[in-house]
Design a protein around this nucleic acid. Sequence first.
DNA 1: TTTAAATTTGACCAAACGGTTAAAGTAAAA
DNA 2: TTTTACTTTAACCGTTTGGTCAAATTTAAA
Lengths: 213, 213
Amino acid sequence: MVNKKEKNKDTEVLILDAARKVFVRKGYDGARMQEIANEAGINKALLHYYFRSKDKLFDQIFKEAFKTFWPKIEVVVSQEDTHVKDLIKVAVNNYVDLLMKMPFLPAFVVGEINRSPEKMEELILSTGINPGKVVEIIKKSIKNGEMIPMDPRELLVNIVGLSVFPFLSRPLLSRMFWDSEEGYTDFLESRRNSLYEFICRSVLTECNKSILC
Amino acid sequence: MVNKKEKNKDTEVLILDAARKVFVRKGYDGARMQEIANEAGINKALLHYYFRSKDKLFDQIFKEAFKTFWPKIEVVVSQEDTHVKDLIKVAVNNYVDLLMKMPFLPAFVVGEINRSPEKMEELILSTGINPGKVVEIIKKSIKNGEMIPMDPRELLVNIVGLSVFPFLSRPLLSRMFWDSEEGYTDFLESRRNSLYEFICRSVLTECNKSILC
DNA sequence: TTTAAATTTGACCAAACGGTTAAAGTAAAA
DNA sequence: TTTTACTTTAACCGTTTGGTCAAATTTAAA
């Protein structure tokens, strides 16, 4: 029975998929081990056989979610001659791509980092994320005169905030200002350009604005 | 015993204060009725005497939080000759004022609107919030030529997002990019100006930029 | 085929949960 | 002082929760 053999082998993956689904949607407090077991199509005891406790399982899911949330800017940006413009475009597009597929990811991450801020120190270290390169690109662009003087960290916060917030507040804003979910999806899609331009207009120096914006 | 008489009269307020504290910090799922009772210095049964169920109590707290979250822009903005510039300045400053006092409010609201999006329709209606006037001001400023053409809703989303996001992600960002909580507080404080300028640079037309920005 | 390890299950447990109840305490009107 | 309505409490209840355990089943090596 090949089917069963495969199932056995991938039970762990099956569980992780189910756990991700439930945890991301309901958060740590709202998630139930029974629901995760059901979602994975297995027994609750088996869940504890693979992952000893709810905390253990959750930590794994959250760490993964957190890493996913930090976009793959670094990869694209590792080239030597990247400009701020590219940085902005890549970041915004990556976020739209990611969050269209996982709309509840931001609320999950934001919720959990506020629920237990103490865990952040360890989490940041464990992921090995370092935004050094991104900061360097911004600094260089300021020196080049492409960009106006500004704290690189602030630009970073603004880019991420502008990209992520419309997803965080989707359940509210879609009902408040748009007449359908599809309409809101179109809005999010259109931000690939409009948001890119919004940020560029604010941070690029005059001569650099006219070229691409 | 005047003290006791006063206490009796304000038990309801005492409970609401306690409930606000616990719910905002832990969310609906994480909050415990016992903890709210302890926080209020009363018995758990008394809690159910004043508010029949957890849901009833929560709904009251959340509705209040949601209203608080929608800033008092409207009041300032009701004057006839308000410009976008004023709108931006007032909005940013109001958010900094509010969220400095209640840092966990945004994560609470965002968490709950994502937990139960179905409730949003009713919630929006019940609050009687209408952003019509704000939208009108933006539209007028575009016609005047003070501001570049842009979907007013998008500007609104950007202003709120930029104002709120640094508070939502504070537990993470303060540890990731700043060396102390105080440093991050200074950053948030400084955004009263830097964020105002960031937005103005992006949306105001050239001639209007030079005047105030 | 036997054996030993890994996998899966149903039944079970103690603790925590939201909520109830009956009775005691308290204030002010009659 | 008695009555009446409101307030507060300790003890209790049924359910759900995360977690355990011994037994059954499956897998693969000997």
